[in-house]
């Protein structure tokens, strides 16, 4: 898969998304918009762990990083955790508000030989992202091209997005954001940060920084349908394994690995800021199934009331019919 092909397929989606970005601001239901989601394929076997993507991400997105005001407001109650990464901005071995992409290492055995694999890890950009859908203030949002972003100007830093994310990707920085202007001690706790797929570069038809700077062409970006086909073909050719196509109902990041992902998951270091590679069920599925019942509910209520009315009318008619005969007796 050449870089030219990935660039071309990407640009098709990029132009469409740039157009749709330009017309946002009104209820989208009112307009017909192209719905081209951009998917990134990450071929783990190509990654050499040079961290060029990590450096490029940090450089390009530096202007989006938090600039907290210190001292932080006193939090109430005291147990509210303060998350401060401003003195540890150079940390690059995990996700932080200043590091939206990191390289995860795994030593695994292939055909009896021990090899080291390196895996670029960042937000998976779910097709139906719970961080976006369950944010109570609409601070997290999904763009028409499938990229999910957190708007730092209206995020209160409640960290719900991190709690509902199956990979717990977003990271909080205290002392920054709109909560400082509202009730800084009582509500909010900063801003959540994560990979935004360089949405502003994509809107201009450019590639995300991590893809642009990768010397090994580890990543390929393009319209979801096309890239899924490429991923499936590649997995077939290399007898590889796919992660992300079905996880959480489908994500817009797909990994291809030469070893099964359960082995890879066992081999990587997991924990805060270091996401797993386990299978993930669709977190939005149960609630969306319940939603079907919600649309039937008003009809059930109306039908019950109509039934009651029918009974009243029927009883009234019976009484009317029975009345004269009683009188005649």
């Amino acid at each position: 898969m050449s870089k030219e092909i990935s660039r071309r397929t990407f640009l098709k989606g990029g132009i469409a998304s740039a157009c749709t970005l330009a017309i946002s601001g009104t209820p989208a239901a009112a307009e017909k918009k192209p719905d081209i989601q951009l998917l990134t394929l990450i071929d783990i076997s190509k990654c050499i762990g040079c961290e060029a993507c990590v450096d490029a991400c940090r450089e390009v997105n530096a202007e989006k990083f938090p600039d907290p005001k210190k001292p932080f407001p006193k939090m109430f109650p005291k147990r509210v955790p303060v998350a401060d990464w401003s003195d540890k901005q150079n940390v690059s071995d995990r996700l932080t508000p200043y590091n939206w992409l990191f390289i995860q290492n795994a030593s695994v055995e292939i055909d009896g030989e021990e090899i080291d694999l390196t895996i670029p890890r960042r937000c998976m950009h779910c097709v139906n992202p719970p961080c976006v859908k369950l944010c109570p203030f609409g601070s997290a949002r999904q763009l028409e091209n499938g990229i999910s972003i957190i708007k730092s100007d209206i995020c209160l830093g409640g960290s719900k997005c991190k709690a509902v994310c199956p990979w717990h990707i977003p990271e909080r920085q205290t002392g920054v954001g709109i909560y400082l202007d509202i009730l800084p001690s009582l509500a909010g706790n900063g801003v959540m940060y994560k990979c935004d797929r360089c949405y502003n570069k994509i809107a201009k038809g450019e590639l995300p920084a991590c893809i642009e700077e990768c010397p090994e062409n580890v990543q390929t970006i393009g319209p979801r349908d096309e890239i899924i086909k490429q991923a499936q073909n590649l997995a077939k050719e290399t007898k590889g394994y796919i992660y992300g196509e079905k996880e959480n109902g489908g994500t817009n990041t797909i990994y291809i690995s030469p070893v099964p992902f359960d082995k890879l998951n066992n081999a990587i270091e997991k924990g805060n800021g270091k996401p797993h590679l386990k299978p993930v069920k669709d977190t939005m599925e149960n609630a969306n199934n319940l939603a079907a019942a919600m649309f039937i509910a008003p009809f059930a209520g109306v039908a019950a009331a109509a039934g009651k009315y029918y009974q009243i009318v029927k009883t009234g008619e019976k009484n009317d019919e029975g009345g004269p005969s009683n009188e005649s007796e």
């Binding site: 209820p27 989208a28 719905d35 949002r141």
Partner: peptide
């Protein structure tokens, strides 16, 4: 909450 991009982000903030 269904999959897909149905409403603009500013409209969702107002809804919330």
């Amino acid at each position: 909450n269904f999959s897909g991009h149905l409403f603009s982000s500013s409209f969702i903030v107002y809804l919330d």
